[in-house]
Amino acid sequence: MVQAEDEAGNAVLREVRQLLRELRILELLAEYHPRLAGTVPLGIQVEGSDLDIICEVQGPRRFTAEARCHFGQLEGFNAVTRTVGGVVRTKINFVAGGWPIELFGQPLPTEKQNAWLHMQVEERILKLLGPGFAEKIRSLKSGGMKTEPAFAKLLKLEGDPYEEMLSLGRLNPEEFNAVCRRAQPYI
């Protein structure tokens, strides 16, 4: 069963990579250091999951104008820039190849953005706890739960799930493993 899940996950990732090549998203937005983040690279996507592409954006107007030039003709194109917690964030959504796509930009290097940091922590957890845990995450997500709250629930984390997941990334390996052991009953 694990092999079948891996093959299915790899097939989805291959499909997504092909779509990104066809759209030339990573090439056209190269100056923004785009990275595919979120559930698809982790293989925990569910029906309706989107493709999250995070970008380092210092000039949101220019970023939006470029995205509109390249992708504005695609279904559901919408761009919003707003300030949250003192940080200007631009979110651009559209649909291509049957996938909802979200371009997310903020003035931080992509590898320092929360979406990337969350994904790194989630990848460590999934590698440690295995396919049973991944299936439980997919089940919670299929029921409507967002990714970080699903992880936090299974790991019995208290407080804001988004902040708690970030804090796991700062733990040493022994502490990290101890937190992950809390999820053992779910596996």
Rank of each mutant, 00 (worst) to 15 (best):
V84T: 15
G86L: 12
G86A: 14
G86R: 12
R89E: 12
T90D: 03
T90I: 11
K91C: 12
I92F: 06
I92V: 15
I92K: 01
F94E: 02
A96M: 07
A96F: 03
G98Q: 03
G98I: 06
W99N: 01
W99S: 00
P100W: 03
P100E: 03
P100K: 11
I101V: 13
I101H: 00
E102C: 12
L103I: 15
L103Q: 04
L103K: 05
P107V: 10
P107L: 09
P107Q: 08
P107M: 09
P109L: 11
T110G: 05
E111I: 15
E111L: 15
E111N: 14
K112S: 11
Q113D: 11
N114L: 12
N114G: 14
W116V: 09
L117R: 13
L117S: 06
L117I: 13
H118V: 12
H118R: 09
M119D: 01
Q120A: 15
V121F: 02
E122F: 08
E122T: 13
E122K: 08
E123G: 08
E123N: 10
R124Y: 06
I125M: 02
L126M: 06
L126V: 11
L128M: 09
L128F: 06
L128N: 04
P131S: 10
G132D: 00
G132Q: 00
G132V: 04
A134C: 05
A134T: 05
E135L: 13
I137V: 15
S139F: 10
S139G: 11
L140T: 07
L140P: 01
L140Q: 03
K141I: 06
K141S: 01
K141P: 03
G143R: 14
G144F: 05
G144T: 13
M145A: 13
T147H: 02
E148P: 05
E148T: 10
E148S: 08
P149F: 08
A150P: 04
F151C: 05
F151P: 00
F151N: 01
K153C: 09
K153G: 05
K153L: 15
K153D: 04
K153E: 08
L154F: 04
L154E: 00
L155Q: 00
L155A: 01
K156A: 09
K156T: 10
L157D: 02
Y162D: 03
E163A: 14
E163V: 15
E164T: 15
M165F: 06
L166C: 10
L166A: 13
L166V: 15
L166K: 14
L168K: 06
L168D: 00
L168V: 13
